[in-house]
């Protein structure tokens, strides 16, 4: 066997194992989606069924018999709301820092990042008691505020990195023409950094959507998001595997697709810009 052939063989083996890994990692998701199309009896059948007559019954049942859509709407409101607020605060700030850096700018950004490291459980009692005092336990507003603040440091850092890539000359030219700062952000910075802003928003939405600690602790029924709703199936009486699977599939599908679309940009956001 020549070196070339050995190389090809080695490659084939690597690809084979890559596929094995991919199938193993994806399998639980595949199994969840598959189970969502089974009847409850088929879902717990022994031995487990790979082939069966698929039914949409679970999907219609959860729409009819649970408040699924309310929880889905709550998830949308809290994750989009939190993201929108974080962006509205971060865009002007990151813009000012990127184009007029001072010797404190880096320290400020690093400090912002450090607030992200504060473990939620460390501030559980104050947040819980403040929400209670304000009569806002089980309120979407509290979650929106928490999500906005939770993601603000990451959003700031990524946007800062994006804005810095915009050549300063472009801005200087527009300033000569007497453009106001607001218009400068709106007409020049935003369009140029649009891709960056969109992928930042996507990352923030993903993080909010999957957030489980605060949504479980601070909500009961009214403001519960999908993560908390799914968690409520932990009780033994909630042992309806097929229906749980249908709920889970619906809850995860949009975010998994978001994740696929944004995978390249996510790396920067997830590592706070440290891996590009």
């Amino acid at each position: 066997m020549t070196d070339k052939q050995a190389e090809i063989l080695k490659n084939r083996i690597a690809v084979f194992f890559a596929w094995i890994a991919a199938l193993l990692f994806f399998f639980p998701i595949f199994w969840m989606v598959l189970t969502s199309f089974k009847s409850e009896a088929q879902a717990i059948a022994i031995p487990p069924l790979l082939f069966f007559e698929p039914t949409l019954e679970n999907y219609t049942e959860i729409q009819a018999r649970t408040n699924y859509s309310q929880f889905a709407i709550n998830s949308v409101i809290t994750s989009f709301g939190g993201t929108l607020i974080a962006l509205l605060i971060a865009i002007p700030s990151a813009y000012a820092m990127a184009f007029n850096p001072t010797r404190y700018t880096k320290d400020i950004l690093m400090w912002m990042l450090s607030t992200k490291m504060l473990p939620a459980v460390g501030v559980l009692m104050p947040i819980y008691l403040i929400s209670q005092k304000l009569g806002m336990l089980d309120s979407k507003i509290v979650l929106v505020v928490i999500y906005a603040m939770m993601n603000l440091p990451i959003v700031m850092l990524i946007l800062f990195n994006y804005f810095r890539e915009i050549p300063k000359e472009i801005l200087e030219a527009s300033r000569m023409d007497g453009t106001s700062t607001f218009n400068e952000i709106k007409d020049i910075v935003m369009p140029l950094a649009w891709g960056g802003i969109a992928s930042t928003a996507l990352l923030s939405i993903i993080l909010c959507w999957n957030e489980a600690f605060w949504s479980i602790v601070l909500t009961t029924t009214e403001a519960s998001t999908l993560t908390a709703f799914v968690a409520s199936f932990q009780a033994p009486e909630g042992l309806f595997w097929a229906k749980v699977s249908a709920v889970s599939t619906l809850a995860c599908a949009p975010i998994v697709v978001f994740g696929w679309l944004a995978q390249k940009q996510l790396v920067q956001g997830l590592t706070f810009g440290a891996v590009k």
């Binding site: 994806f26 959507w209 799914v230 889970s248 975010i255």
Partner: peptide
């Protein structure tokens, strides 16, 4: 895509899938 998907599954869902199914 198959390899990175589990990262985007919400933790409560992944816990239930593993626990039950």
């Amino acid at each position: 895509v198959m390899l990175i998907s589990p990262f985007f599954i919400m933790p409560t869902v992944s816990a239930l899938v593993w626990k039950n199914m």
